[in-house]
């Protein structure tokens, strides 16, 4: 029983960070109607920024939260503006080609980082990386708890932005009906840049929060693109609430799978869930909650 609760706790904590990364992808999906297949790679770039700051300037990963996400916001907005939006304007190119473009962007990012840092595994070993505290018989890993709390704070801020501000309403309006949004005076092109930037920044925050516990190499992006994709499908395309649920479900499922089935099959668990969802709940969790 103790082991079960311990597993559950670990799953929920990692799930919070997954949710943060997944929300970034679902936001982009909602507004642009494309799957951003460079999502994990953008996160990887943010992790390297955090790594460089720690290694050469001795800046703590949590302070890097003030650097990496804004940097990725700018990179994301520039990608949308100069690489993705021009594709929409050419009528003979189908919108789905934007997806292929994101694949290309992901490859370029990965190989650029490999060129600069080589393929070696890196890690950020802080004094608190392995720190834990106990509540009853359950042990809590300090960086995971911090990551979870910050992920919740960031997610809540994003919701406040989307629900309460005029720009947030413009983002939601563009996601729900782009044509209607434009005649309501919303500069939809600018909104797409803002959204891609925000999505990239959310992924960057997720990556930075993972760094004290995770290791780092240029190909780390791919598995996270996959995880974010699974979360997006699991939650229902474009649903932010669904993405939170999706992130938590994936975290817990991976954790349970690693404990009770096999550590080696951890990533396969996600794919099994993915297939089950597509077969039995094609609309995702959104289908159940209607939000």
């Amino acid at each position: 029983m103790e082991m079960f609760i311990q597993t559950l706790v670990a799953g929920i904590l990692i799930g919070g960070v997954y949710a943060l990364i997944g929300i970034g992808m679902t936001l982009i999906m909602g507004v642009m109607r494309i799957i951003n297949l460079a999502h994990g790679q953008l996160m990887m770039v943010a992790m390297y920024i955090t790594f460089v700051l720690y290694q050469f300037l001795n800046i703590d990963p949590y302070f890097a939260l003030l650097v990496a996400p804004p940097a990725l916001f700018l990179i994301g907005a520039a990608i949308q503006r100069y690489l993705l939006n021009p594709l929409i304007k050419i009528e003979s190119i189908i919108p789905e080609n934007q997806v292929l473009m994101t694949v290309g962007i992901g490859i370029v990012l990965t190989e650029t980082i490999r060129f600069m840092f080589s393929s070696d595994y890196k890690s950020v070993k802080t004094s608190y990386s392995t720190a834990t505290f106990n509540i009853g018989a359950i042990s809590w890993n300090v960086p995971m708890v911090v990551a979870f709390i910050l992920a919740v704070v960031l997610t809540a801020s994003l919701f406040f932005f989307l629900l309460k501000t005029d720009v947030g309403k413009s983002v939601r309006a563009t996601a729900q009906n782009k044509d209607a949004a434009m005649i309501m005076g919303i500069n939809a092109e600018w909104i797409t840049q803002l959204t891609y930037g925000l999505g990239a920044a959310m992924a960057a925050a997720g990556g930075t929060l993972l760094l004290p516990i995770y290791y780092l190499f240029p190909d780390v992006g791919g598995p996270f693109t996959l995880k974010a994709f699974i979360i997006t499908i699991l939650g229902g395309l474009g649903s932010a609430v669904g993405a939170i649920m999706g992130g938590l479900v994936l975290g817990v499922a991976e954790s349970l799978g690693a404990t009770y089935i096999s550590m080696a099959l951890k990533d396969a668990i996600g794919m099994v869930i993915f297939l089950l969802v597509l077969v039995f709940l094609p609309g995702g969790l959104k289908q159940l909650t209607k939000v």
């Binding site: 309460k164 501000t165 005029d166 309403k169 413009s170 939601r172 949004a181 309501m184 005076g185 919303i186």
Partner: peptide, 11 residues
């Protein structure tokens, strides 16, 4: 309201 934000940014 989303439309009204066309002329103002005050909620």
């Amino acid at each position: 309201m989303t439309s009204a934000f066309c002329r103002t940014s005050n909620t």
